[in-house]
Design a protein around this nucleic acid. Structure first.
Length: 293
DNA sequence: CTGGAACCTACATAAGTTAT
DNA sequence: ATAACTTATGTAGGTTCCAG
C-alpha cells in the first residue's frame, strides 16, 4: 500500500497564503472502495457537513459523521472512503507559509517536529466547543475564498491566524525542547530577524549562545527542525514573496532587499521553496485563479 | 561537549540562453 | 535591447562523523 502512495501536488488558490479550499458532494457507491493512499506537505482539514466517511492514516481509522471535522498533518499518508452521500469542504494549507515573527516560538508544534498534528483530533473529540470554533472558522474561509470580495485575503489570513492559535493552544504535543533551550536560542533567532538582509555567518552569532561551533549546528537543527542556513533562507524567501506581491521592484532588487547577495542565488533558492520562479510567482498572483475547483 | 577530518552544499563569478 | 533566467566551475563555508 505505502509503496504506491502518491505525493500529491497541491495547486494553491493563492500564492502567498498557500491554501486550497473547495467543496465536494459525492454520491454513495454500491461498494465501499478506498480512494488511493496519498500524502502532501500541506496539512489537510476536512469538514463533513452531511453523510459519513472514513479516513485512514497509518495509525488510525477515523469515522466521521455529520458536522464533523478532522485534521491531517503534513506529509501524513492517508486515504478516505465514503459511506453515504457526502458533503464536505476540504482545506489544504502550507504551514511553512504561515510562519512569521509571532509563530516563531511555536514552530516545533506547527511544523510537527515531534508529533504529527493529527494527535489534536483526540483533543477535539472531547472538546466540542473548540471543534465548533474551528468548524465555523473554516466555513468563513470557504465563503471568503469563493466570493473574493475586496479584503478577502485579509479575512482569510486572519482566520488562519486564529486557526494557528487554536492549534497551538490545544495541541497535545509539548514543545520538543525545554524552555531553557528556547531561552538559549532566542538571541540567535532575534539576531536573524534583525540582520537577515545582510550576510550572516555562523561565526558571527556564536558569541550569542556561547556554544562551540559544531555543537551549535547540531543543537540548532535539533531545536528548530531545520539547519541554520535553511532557516535563514526561509526568512529571506518570506520577505522576497512579500516584496514581489507588494512592490514593483524588479527581480534583482527584490533579491537584494531580501538578503540575497546576487540574483542568481535568489532565483535558484526561490525555486527550491516555491516551485515557481520569482517572476512567475508574481504573475500568478495578478491573475485570479481560473476555476474554483 | 570538543575538535579535527571528510564530506557536502552554497556561493560568486562569468558567460550563456530565453522571453519580452 | 534589456530583463529574467540558466549553467559551469573553483572555492569558502556549512554539516556530519567520530574519537577522545
Amino acid at each position: 500500500m505505502e509503496e504506491n502512495a502518491k505525493n500529491e501536488h497541491v495547486n494553491y488558490h493563492h500564492p502567498l497564503l498557500r491554501y486550497k479550499i473547495w467543496d465536494i458532494t459525492l454520491e454513495p457507491l454500491p461498494s465501499l472502495p478506498w480512494n488511493p493512499w496519498h500524502y502532501h506537505k500541506e496539512i489537510e482539514i476536512i469538514l463533513l457537513f452531511e453523510g459519513a466517511m472514513q479516513v485512514e492514516t497509518v495509525d488510525t481509522i477515523y469515522h466521521l459523521q455529520d458536522q464533523d471535522l478532522l485534521i491531517i498533518g503534513s506529509s501524513r499518508l492517508h486515504r478516505t472512503r465514503r459511506q453515504k452521500l457526502v458533503k464536505q469542504i476540504v482545506l489544504q494549507l502550507d504551514m511553512t507559509a504561515q510562519l512569521d515573527p509571532y509563530t516563531k516560538d511555536f514552530s516545533p508544534i506547527l511544523l510537527e517536529l515531534s508529533d504529527p498534528l493529527d494527535r489534536i483530533n483526540e483533543v477535539l473529540a472531547n472538546n466540542q466547543s473548540v471543534k465548533d470554533t474551528i468548524f465555523h472558522l473554516l466555513v468563513q474561509v470557504y465563503q471568503e475564498a469563493s466570493h473574493m470580495e475586496p479584503g478577502y485575503e485579509l479575512a482569510i489570513s486572519g482566520a488562519f491566524k486564529q486557526l494557528l492559535s487554536l492549534l497551538i493552544r490545544h495541541s497535545p504535543s509539548s514543545p520538543p525542547i525545554s524552555p531553557a533551550d528556547w531561552q538559549r536560542l532566542k538571541p540567535v533567532l532575534d539576531y536573524i530577524d534583525l540582520h537577515y538582509r545582510n550576510p550572516i555567518r555562523i561565526q558571527d552569532i556564536l558569541h550569542l549562545v556561547h556554544l562551540e561551533y559544531h555543537y551549535f549546528i547540531k543543537y540548532f537543527q535539533q531545536c528548530i527542525g531545520m539547519s541554520f542556513v535553511d532557516y535563514l533562507h526561509l526568512r529571506r524567501i518570506k520577505t522576497a514573496e512579500h516584496l514581489l506581491l507588494t512592490e514593483s521592484l524588479n527581480i534583482a532588487d527584490v533579491g537584494v532587499q531580501s538578503g540575497f547577495p546576487n540574483v542568481n542565488m535568489f532565483i535558484r533558492i526561490f525555486k527550491r521553496y516555491n516551485a515557481y520562479t520569482p517572476s512567475e510567482f508574481r504573475k500568478r498572483r495578478i491573475q485570479k485563479p481560473s476555476s474554483f475547483v
